[in-house]
Nucleic acid binder design. Sequence first.
DNA 1: TCAAGCTGTTCTATATTTAGTACAGATATC
DNA 2: GATATCTGTACTAAATATAGAACAGCTTGA
Lengths: 278, 278
Amino acid sequence: MDSAADGTERGFRAGLSRTRAAYLALRDRIARGEFRPGERFPGEPTLAVELGVSRVTLRHALDRLEAEGLVERRMGSGTYLSARGGGSPVVADLANVLTHLVDMGRRTSVRLLSFAYVAPSPDIASALQLPEGERVQRSERVRLIDGQPFSYLVTSVPERIGIGWSEDDLAKKPLLELLERAGLVADHARQTITAALAGPDVARELGIEPGSALLALTRTVFDPQGRGIEHLQALYRPDLYSFQMDLVRAGHREGRRWRPVAVEGLKLDDEHPKTAAE
Amino acid sequence: MDSAADGTERGFRAGLSRTRAAYLALRDRIARGEFRPGERFPGEPTLAVELGVSRVTLRHALDRLEAEGLVERRMGSGTYLSARGGGSPVVADLANVLTHLVDMGRRTSVRLLSFAYVAPSPDIASALQLPEGERVQRSERVRLIDGQPFSYLVTSVPERIGIGWSEDDLAKKPLLELLERAGLVADHARQTITAALAGPDVARELGIEPGSALLALTRTVFDPQGRGIEHLQALYRPDLYSFQMDLVRAGHREGRRWRPVAVEGLKLDDEHPKTAAE
DNA sequence: TCAAGCTGTTCTATATTTAGTACAGATATC
DNA sequence: GATATCTGTACTAAATATAGAACAGCTTGA
């Protein structure tokens, strides 16, 4: 019963241009494995009809796919899915992103974007169970791996905890280290994973296009007494990194479920030698 | 050194319209907690200058935010962040999505979109470690929760395993149940989580706008002997559901890390009574 | 060699988006 | 009640996106 049914929903203001819609449609077909690396696409006239756009528009979409290296075009011959097709990127541990990357020998650095004491937004205040009126030390940072922007981090720490830290601390040390230096113990945490779209400012910091998809992770860290000591909102580039976890089937009969397992050694060269080679 | 630095990158073909860029910028500022529920935004002329667009364009972006219920506009007064602001949606267990939802008493149903025996794409073939030439039973399904589209699933099962199943089976039974009915044991799995953009066709099936962000989960299931028995690509709507996990800090000294913990009881009414109420 | 099919390029015409401006009507504040 | 500020609306002009078509040049295969 939606208006999408008739298909003639053209011109919804904040929606997508036809070029971008065609671009996404192709990207999706590639991601779902419709073509194999090196395979030739249908011709431009055919594709244009399939996608319901003119050939000019289709070509703009293909221009973009080519610029991103997803396809290769050979004059007079056709458009081909590039060798590395939809191939997955480097994979990271879901829970210990930073530790994991350091283990891999990657150099990480941090750029501090902002640093201030502010009234927390309501969801952060309730996640940290802060009393009314208590402020937080809020910092926005970008973490770079081997010089490439990797994650956009917004951390909020109760004022009384963060008060001793300098901007220099935040630009150089991981937050967990600062917490433990302050005598606090990170005991347990609850994290939520979701997806979000990159706004223009975040996109600029991460070196991606606005409107790209991002992996969003929200984590609240508690001390042994269950008091909130840190709130983290992180945005990751899914084109460079994705999260991985192993599961084992545990339980009996009806209660049988998947149980997450800590990723021990991170077998990157295993089964996927190519990812390690590049 | 990127072309994004000068800011005058207007008109990149498959990029975003200025209206959509403004829409995303506002959405981002809201998500990052810049405004609190009920708070008034800067006036339209001010916002237009801040975002670098004309007031007409800004209003189109606001129209959309209003249509999505994120903001409320009062004539002559201003634009206000709506009560439920950036509030998180229902939260689901990361590993046992389906089981978890059933536990919550939700009714799920499935729509089978396609069903065929095809040559697997290279990444699926290598994930399942299939011998050259072996085909897979590939099905595309949409799972609905309480009648609402929730996830888009593409499952691939080695031909020799799936050969006994009918389309009706796939439309009614969970795949794990079919596997175990066939005498196979799902022992362990490896899953990868990332983010993706919705293409027009997936968007139509899930009842969302093309270009929306989606949570993407890829899972390969193995039997006790380590042979691949199922490959799953799932896309979830992050506006309705997100994944949650608990972590505990384990290990000593330098080796201290976060260890994932199975979510036991799923405390939904805890701390967030509002989400349960709606 | 030839013909068919493909991409690359250019052009015109139309539709849509965006900027800029002005003004009407509603609301809040003093 | 006067006044400033705000949203709602309307209009014009310019920039951009899209459709449709034609043709040139390259590649492939019969």
